[in-house]
Computed example of a mutant assay.
Amino acid sequence: MIGTVHVTDRGAVRVHTYVAPDASVNVTSHVVETPHSLVVVDAQFLGRFADEVVELTRDLGKPVDRVVITHAHPDHYAGAGHFDAPKHALPVVIDQIRARGDVQDPTGTTVALRDVLPTQALEPGTTVIDGVPFVFEAVSGGEAPDQLVVKLPEQRVAIVQDLVYNHIHLFLGDDDIPGWRRAVAVLAADPGYDVVLPGHGQPTTPAVYAEVERYLATAAEVLGDDGDAYEAAITERYPDYDGTFVIDIANRYLFGAGH
């Protein structure tokens, strides 16, 4: 296995967090293992890493009840076609994925929309799966226009995906730092969770919310109208963060193809 797996053990429920290698920006998939089934949250970017998550589910020996896609960025859903299970997402996220159409993964391979488009509309609220309450919360603004947070209140685990990166440079391409800061503040104000599972990087604790807030505050301070200057400034402030090429990708959205 090229990626790494980190297990959050809460007795009858365990969460197996698959973290892709650096070249795939340490994007995560979370396999929630309930007593008799599995729920997969997000499906990787590259097919070979999606296959590793599929293999993980097979090793666990339980059927995959569903694959939940949290938002419409291809690094979280391009591998969805590798899973033989219903795909669920917020209606607005389904619309956004449909609007993107076919996408390309980092190898240049075309991923057909028909293979990855979720067909099951997920409504916010509490859903009990295999006796375990899952709380689905819709969040607007931040790294993506619309995102899903998945909480396991009895296990005190919050799967917050791309509202949090753990020690990795943030993707600011949607140009919504204020919305992101508001969303993180709401998460930080909820004391019911002691494990935070990010969309990029290893499992962490609620202390990560303050780290993300500081990064966003710094980004708001140094982000001007020059992508190269921004990259130099933010990497100087955060020299030990991984994923500097994420800044380059975001800069193309913020400043145009020349960056």
Rank of each mutant, 00 (worst) to 15 (best):
D95C: 08
A89S: 15
D84W: 10
A80N: 09
D102P: 12
V92Y: 06
R114D: 14
T110M: 11
N26R: 15
Y77W: 02
T70K: 09
V116G: 04
V40H: 09
R114V: 02
D42Y: 12
V92H: 03
P35D: 10
H36R: 15
I69S: 06
E33Y: 02
T28Y: 07
P63N: 12
A43G: 11
R48M: 10
D102N: 15
H73S: 06
I94M: 10
G108W: 07
G108K: 07
E52P: 09
T109A: 12
D102R: 12
I69F: 07
H82C: 06
R98E: 15
T34K: 08
G108C: 15
G61Y: 05
T57Q: 12
F49V: 01
V92R: 14
F83A: 11
T70Q: 12
V31M: 08
A99W: 03
V27F: 00
R100N: 10
A50R: 01
H30E: 01
S37Q: 12
D102M: 12
P63G: 13
G47S: 12
I97N: 00
T34G: 05
A80L: 07
V111N: 02
V32M: 08
G101S: 12
D75P: 02
Y77R: 00
E55V: 12
E55T: 12
A112N: 14
I97V: 10
P91N: 03
Q96K: 11
K62N: 09
F45L: 01
A85Y: 08
D51Q: 05
H76Q: 09
T70W: 06
L46C: 09
V54C: 04
A112V: 05
D105G: 03
V32Y: 03
K62S: 07
E55F: 04
V53N: 00
A43H: 05
P86A: 13
D84C: 11
D84K: 11
F45N: 03
G101F: 06
V39R: 11
L38M: 00
V111F: 02
K87V: 08
V67N: 09
V68K: 04
A80K: 06
I94R: 13
V27W: 05
L90Y: 14
V103Q: 11
D59W: 09
T109C: 02
Q104K: 15
